[in-house]
Structures are given as structure tokens and as C-alpha cells.
Simulated scan of single mutants.
Amino acid sequence: MVDEPLDNLDRRILHLLQVDARGASDTAIADETDVTGTTINNRITQLEEKGVILGYNPEINYEAAGYPMRVLFICSTDLSRRSEMAEQALEVRGVVNVREMLSGEENLHVEVVAEATTDIKQSTEQLDELGLQLVSSNILAEEHVQPWNHFHQELVGEPDALSDRESTEK
């Protein structure tokens, strides 16, 4: 968790990284934000150290990579074991994503990528062996993702000029 709230510069950096993390060099972000590359580098390092930026992951077209099967398993487990089961599910062959739901019966969503239905069957068996109750499964056709667009919006009442912290980093 962050010790202090994000300011406009932090939010703009996060937005630009979401739009294109690979192409967003310190210099390119500096040009967009009107601060120095050093300031951007320092801010990104701080955001990483605070756990705001967790990593940089490529978006994969699994079908183009030879893995046309994508299945979303809706599972149930005891709420007290949900995090433990999520970690164990990540070890199952083909699992690329596990989402923990806050509450309810269908509290783990497990995404599996595979080359063929036989691979999906193997993953299903492994999830069952973990003790997860498989409620339903759905073949995923397409996924549409976009950057969260509120990072770049300024808060009402917040000055447009650089804050004291930003001006000292220049």
C-alpha cells in the first residue's frame, strides 16, 4: 500500500505505462509529462518499491502461439483456503491466471490455456485433485482489455503545476 496518495505525475506515469509499457521509455514519458527523464526514472522506481507497479507482462495471443484452447473454470473452495488454493492452482499445467473473488460460492476463477482438449482434460483433473469444486467451465473466445483511464485525470482542486516534490526531483 502507498504511504502517500499518488499525485498527477504518478497517475500519468501509470497511465502511460499501461498504454505501452514496452515503448514507454523514461525519455518518452518525460516528453509527455514535461519533467526530466531522471524524475520519471525515480518515480517509476518509487512506484515499484511501494508495490504500486508489480511488474511488466506481455499480452500474449495464445492462439497465434499454437494454443487455441482457452477455458475459464469457475470454482468453489472454502473462503479460509481461497488464497492457498489460488497459489496451488497456479501450479496446474496450463493455468495462466487465477482470480480470487471476495466472497460467494464461485470464489476462484481459473484460466487455462492449452493446445488441445486432452490438455484441458488433464488440467481439469489436476484442479479436481486439489480439492476445488468445479462449478462450470466456459471456452473463451476473445478478451478485450484497456488501460484504466482514470490515472491521467486530474483531481478537482489539485493544482496543475508541479507539486513541491516534483520540482525538487527535476
Results as ranks from 00 to 15, higher is better:
5 P>R: 07
12 R>M: 15
14 L>N: 06
15 H>L: 11
18 Q>D: 05
20 D>V: 04
20 D>A: 12
21 A>Q: 02
22 R>N: 13
25 S>G: 12
25 S>Y: 08
29 I>P: 10
30 A>M: 09
33 T>S: 15
33 T>R: 03
34 D>K: 12
34 D>L: 10
35 V>G: 06
36 T>H: 11
36 T>E: 11
36 T>N: 11
38 T>A: 14
39 T>H: 15
42 N>W: 03
44 I>H: 07
44 I>F: 05
47 L>W: 05
48 E>V: 14
50 K>H: 09
51 G>F: 01
54 L>N: 08
55 G>E: 06
56 Y>L: 06
57 N>C: 01
57 N>E: 14
57 N>S: 09
58 P>K: 05
61 N>M: 00
61 N>K: 02
62 Y>W: 15
63 E>D: 12
63 E>T: 11
65 A>L: 15
69 M>F: 02
72 L>E: 05
72 L>N: 08
74 I>F: 08
75 C>N: 13
76 S>F: 00
76 S>M: 02
77 T>I: 14
78 D>I: 00
81 R>G: 01
81 R>P: 00
82 R>V: 15
83 S>E: 13
85 M>W: 04
86 A>W: 07
88 Q>A: 14
89 A>H: 08
90 L>P: 00
90 L>M: 15
91 E>D: 14
91 E>P: 01
92 V>G: 04
92 V>L: 05
93 R>G: 07
93 R>I: 06
96 V>A: 01
96 V>K: 05
97 N>V: 00
97 N>R: 13
98 V>W: 05
103 S>T: 11
103 S>D: 09
104 G>L: 04
104 G>N: 05
105 E>C: 04
105 E>D: 11
110 V>L: 09
115 E>D: 10
119 D>G: 15
119 D>V: 01
120 I>V: 14
123 S>N: 04
124 T>K: 08
126 Q>V: 01
126 Q>H: 12
127 L>R: 04
135 V>F: 03
136 S>V: 01
139 I>M: 11
139 I>N: 10
141 A>E: 07
142 E>N: 13
144 H>S: 06
145 V>A: 07
147 P>F: 03
148 W>K: 10
149 N>L: 07
152 H>V: 07
154 E>I: 08
155 L>P: 01
156 V>S: 13
159 P>H: 03
159 P>M: 03
162 L>M: 09
163 S>Y: 00
164 D>T: 05
164 D>Y: 04
166 E>P: 01
167 S>R: 15
168 T>Q: 12
169 E>C: 03
